[in-house]
Computed example of a mutant assay.
Amino acid sequence: MVMMSLDRLVGSLKSKLRSLKPKRPDYDKIEKSESMRVEIRSRKARKLIEETLKVADSPKSKSYAF
Rank of each mutant, 00 (worst) to 15 (best):
M1Q: 10
M3L: 10
M4Y: 05
M4H: 07
L6M: 15
R8T: 15
L9K: 15
L9M: 15
G11V: 04
G11C: 06
G11I: 04
S12Y: 14
S12R: 15
L13A: 11
K14S: 14
K14M: 13
S15V: 13
S15Q: 15
S15Y: 13
K16Q: 15
L17A: 14
S19W: 08
L20G: 03
K21G: 05
K21E: 15
P22F: 09
K23Q: 12
K23G: 02
K23R: 11
R24L: 12
R24S: 13
D26Q: 10
Y27F: 11
D28H: 06
E31W: 03
K32F: 10
K32Y: 08
K32G: 05
E34G: 06
S35L: 09
S35R: 08
R37C: 10
E39D: 12
E39M: 10
I40C: 05
R41T: 03
S42Y: 02
R43H: 05
R43G: 02
K44R: 05
A45E: 08
A45W: 04
R46I: 00
L48I: 02
I49D: 01
E51W: 02
T52E: 02
V55P: 00
A56D: 02
D57R: 01
D57Q: 00
D57H: 00
P59C: 02
S61T: 08
S63D: 06
Y64G: 01
Y64F: 09
Y64K: 08
A65Q: 13
A65W: 08
F66I: 09
